[in-house]
Nucleic acid binder design. Structure first.
Lengths: 210, 210, 210, 210
DNA sequence: GATGAATGAGCATTCATTCAT
DNA sequence: TATGAATGAATGCTCATTCAT
């Protein structure tokens, strides 16, 4: 499942240039994600991105003014989407903090596992954005981090979690979770869902939940 | 403290120009580490590496036949050194598994914190090595991973740890620990040693130590 | 007369700058031929080739993926064209073997004299092509050699030629003829046509024609 | 048999620096000959020459001030030696012009066949010498050419040869003979001596000897 | 939107040569 | 003689980007 190509498309809007423009941009983002994942931002050439998208090199520039804008678009979508998914997972969980925190972590890991290359790129290539672009993404990640941190603080206040350092616990947990994109292979013995549950358990342990 | 500059230098040989007295290969490795950290392997040019080392571009090639050999040398040194340090930390700790595991994790994190850029490069740029070179480093990392995994299994056998999945716990812990190189800044409020201790506690929680 | 500039050009399209009107690929091949002739394949730089063609260095690579492909293109054109010319000269000559052989040799030499640099490069730089590319050209040269060898065998069969070694006679003759590209200067006293006739006479003597 | 390493060495002179100097220079020339043959003058690096000679790169410069001096030395030796050999072959032959011319051509070809790489280099790489060095070799080749041309003129005067163009016949013959270095392989079916005799016959035909 | 041609700066690497010892 | 270290210029080639159509 790709983040860039939505699988539900309104059939009425399939014609006309706007829709075709959407398709092309999506193809470029998809190709770029794969290339950035495999070769890194600086190791992947615009030609390779264009070729992978089945698009003319020059035409890429009709959709993205510069290479870094492609990376920015990938990261923006990824982080935004992950915030949405974790937020709604937390909202949809049971009323106990433990349940809500677990649901949040599980959905976070699941997102990374289901979008391995996007998530990997989001973690590893952010540093190649120039300051203004980078700050936009960093701000979004702060939102994501705050979501978990708040839950931890809440758990500590309610007595369910006993970690003395909510902020560092959140940071450690998030980097641990993001780490799955480095080594997980879908062909392995562990299903994404099972792994996500396992990580939720680690996360609970880190905040010293009872 | 740099990994590349040998600790034992004959003080009598320090005369002569500062630049010449310093080992050229070490200067190149140090510069390359910094450049690879800041710009990534493909984003850092050999010219930048040479300039940073105060060395002629062509002279770099008198010490390293190719760019990738510089990366290889950095990774080899880093991983080897970290194995040594963690191994001896484990050996020098108390007899209980909890103590030995904690000491191992703490020294692992401490190493990363004291060689932030080297450790960061070791984690993020390994994938840019070609297969044969990459496999050499991967084999070394497997040794490192085995060290922790064995300790966990031992703890489980003795009853001190209760995690049902030693291998995954080790993986999760190591990626969590390696994650500190992404965000830690020495100028921050937390000392390296304090942070390392904190991570040892997280690690213990993950393996569900009592 | 150049081999690279096509003979039939639409006169109406000659407007626009002289440089642009000229085919870029042809200009590159022409310049490369001259540079390879003067400095040799390894002694001629792509920058020199580009400059000689009035073309940007990088633009050369829009037409030829590698330096060796330029050499390949030159040799392919040269050898193919020479085969065509000698074949049709043989076909258009009188019915006697002596006449046909003489016509073949004469046209062969004439081709070399009228395309001195191309022919010189074809003789001297072939060895710098990598195996697969070289074999393509070698196969073409075998066709050329076979043309003459067959004529000699025919002459021997009919009694006009008395050489006991048709193959070696053909080889000796062709290398002798190709040799003119080394020393002939159009400014000299001997016209190309006269020299070609003289070589046809040598060739006849070598096969011991009556 | 190499031109550079004499096979008769005075055993008494084997020690001391002069003799060792000789050996080193000879090794360099031998290696350079092989490299120039295989890769061409510009395609062969000084490092490759040094390595092939089992000599330090810097030490090469103790014997030859520049790369082109190595080429010059090779060519000088080769051409000089060939002149000597052909001259004495002519002198040692029977009294008839036909015999003397045949002996000259045969010994010329034989020299090329017995020193394939040296002779090849002498033919193909001469053009890479700068003007003053090149002229020295060209002057030597003129001597070689004059030897054959004089014989032809003598033969014409005496009535044995009937070619109307002694000079062009000599040129054609010499380029034909030199051509053997391009294709001859000692492993082939034809012995060097047999091939040389065959070429002497071609040469006689070219000058229209009776 | 889409294209093919073009560009200038930059890339990793190699060159012949020099120099201090 | 001999060496190991060093150098500046050049090598073939690729880069992200632009532009005219």
């Amino acid at each position: 499942m790709s983040l860039q190509t939505p699988h539900t498309v309104d059939p009425d809007s399939r014609e006309g240039s706007v829709q075709r423009g959407r398709d092309v941009a999506a193809a470029i983002l998809e190709s770029a994600t794969e290339k950035f994942h495999r070769r890194g931002f600086h190791g992947a050439s615009m030609r390779a991105v264009a070729d992978g998208a089945g698009v003319t090199l020059s035409n890429v520039y009709n959709y993205f003014p510069a290479k870094s804008d492609i990376l920015l678009a990938i990261l923006r979508t990824a982080v935004t989407e992950q915030i949405k998914i974790t937020t709604s997972a937390v909202a949809g969980a049971g009323s106990s903090v433990v349940d809500r925190y677990s649901a949040g972590v599980e959905s976070f890991v699941l997102f990374d596992l289901e979008h391995l290359d996007v998530a990997f790129v989001a973690n590893s290539e952010l540093r190649y954005l120039d300051a203004p672009q980078r700050e936009e993404i960093v701000a979004l990640r702060d939102v994501q981090q705050a979501l978990f941190e708040e839950l931890i603080r809440e758990g500590v206040a309610l007595g369910g979690f006993r970690t003395p350092h909510p902020r560092e616990a959140a940071t450690a947990t998030l980097t641990m979770c993001a780490g799955v994109t480095v080594w997980y292979r879908p062909s392995g013995p562990l299903s994404a869902r099972a792994l996500a549950r396992r990580y939720a358990r680690y996360a609970l342990a880190i905040v010293e939940g009872t």
